[in-house]
Design a protein around this nucleic acid. Structure first.
Lengths: 273, 273
DNA sequence: ACCCGTATGTTCGGCATCGTACACAACGCG
DNA sequence: CGCGTTGTGTACGATGCCGAACATACGGGT
């Protein structure tokens, strides 16, 4: 999938047309499932070291869940679930980063949550809903473990620790969304962009992110032009370097100083467990 | 408590000084407890018709919870819990409306959630946390039922329906926060203010709200002056009327048209149950 | 009846971000 | 190698909201 079609995925489909073409989604998901890694060794490696949420589970629950888990590779721009459409798979990111987007009535969208190895994509299912209220889009390619929705739903009641982790993560996502409200309200775009780079970098566990400035603009609800200007400023300050579809963090402490303190506040709650 | 001291409650206490004076909070809470209504009849009336969340519980759980519930009257500006401070009581609003506020590093705060008869104040406790990440402030005076935190925590595991309602409400609050992010990002202040009036009016079940424009400004993260200007515009359009510490909705359909569609989207999810 | 605290109304310059348009540069493919 | 596609850089006016300062009006208490 090209960057452009990825962006199309991001922006198409307003709230008035939530009954989107299910076939299209399936196609994307099927595309990812063709990348399934079948080697048990890889599966175990992914599982044990990858998801801090799964790693926190006791052995019994871990094994019970493992049966239904399937490793997949997710690519930038892939849509994992759409708002108001029943969730098919729950994803536990391992190396990928997933962005949650909410739309407004005229179709514009903005990121409202960021999930990595510490979390779950498809939380709503664990809270008893069949569908999420947001779109989940892959913001950094990488591996994930997924489980079918029905299977997850039937396993969850037998796994108290998984439940506990899920609720803890829900609390963290709630705090993340709420901090984002305050941050968007009071802080300048420069600080917000710096925060986004840091948060995504933390979850991708890499100083280099492969995405376009258009993508970034969509995430932050800014114009592409604004992102270019900010990136230029940060680059002149030697905090980052930019290429074509590539952003690298050069000076992490410097970037943290340029970001607002919402960064540390969110990460403390989110990545602490 | 005067409106001014209420506003002081709202704005004092930045994130750097989260270890606020516990004595002061206790004083406020004790003030409310002096207004406890002791008549069993009133208690029953409050319980049955007031909280749609409690009303959805089956008889057995209802009665089990009832033992610990205590009716209180909450006044504008009262702080029910502070971020990072252990929650003492869970509140089920009946006639009051409670606003959840998040602060940023420099102490400024903005509303990130609105709770009425449909919800719970102190959700974090139900998710396994001891403290919330937000401040809960009364935005419209009225009655509520409260229960001690420890008691709630011990009762919850025995009440599957209560758990289910709690998780359903958590999902709704998450959706509310996320929709607020998008709304603040894309919609003009006029529409946001209209939305706030409608949402608060729905929860207070009254066309008249008793609060100052300063209070409203704090909630929306705007200047008081901006609120005055917007209120003037809405008033000229005969949608609302304003008095000193009083706002009345005159033309509800008109105000809904002036608000963004985030209003109906949030209310559909939140008040549907 | 008066006064003072409190709430509301008005003005002014500043500026971050927007929408739009256009130019340039890198990569991929025939 | 040339060409179209895609990503990045620059310019310009418009505007919504901000910060600050000041003016007015309501209303309860002495």
């Amino acid at each position: 999938m090209s960057l452009q079609s990825a962006l199309l995925q991001l922006t198409k489909g307003g709230p008035e047309q939530q009954a989107i073409d299910a076939g299209e989604i399936d196609a994307i998901v099927d595309y990812s499932s063709s990348n399934v890694i079948l080697f048990p060794a890889a599966r175990r490696a992914l599982h044990a070291s990858g998801s801090s949420l799964l790693a926190a589970l006791p052995g019994a629950e871990y094994r019970q869940l493992l049966v239904g888990l399937e490793p997949v590779t997710l690519k930038l721009g892939q849509v994992l679930h759409e708002p108001a459409v029943p969730i098919r798979y729950i994803y536990f990111p391992v190396g990928c980063v997933v962005s949650l987007m909410t739309t407004v009535a005229d179709g514009k969208a903005v990121e409202v949550g960021l999930v990595g190895y510490e979390g779950i994509v498809g939380l709503a299912l664990g809270l008893g809903a069949a569908a999420s209220s947001v779109r989940a889009v892959v913001a950094a390619s990488g591996a994930a473990l997924r489980i079918e929705a029905a299977r997850f739903r039937s396993t969850l009641p037998q796994c108290p620790s998984l439940q506990q982790e899920l609720y803890r993560h829900t609390d963290a996502m709630l705090a993340q969304a709420r901090q984002t409200i305050a941050c968007n309200c009071f802080h300048l775009s420069d600080a917000r962009l710096a925060r986004w780079l840091l948060m995504t970098s933390d979850r991708a566990q890499s100083q280099e992110l492969f995405l376009t400035q258009s993508f970034l603009a969509t995430m932050l609800g800014l114009r592409r032009v604004t992102v270019t200007e900010i990136a230029g400023r940060l680059w002149r300050r030697k905090l980052i370097s930019c290429g074509r579809g590539r952003i690298r963090i050069l000076d992490r402490p410097g970037l943290e100083a340029a970001a607002c303190r919402c960064y540390s506040r969110i990460e403390r709650q989110q990545l602490s467990g």
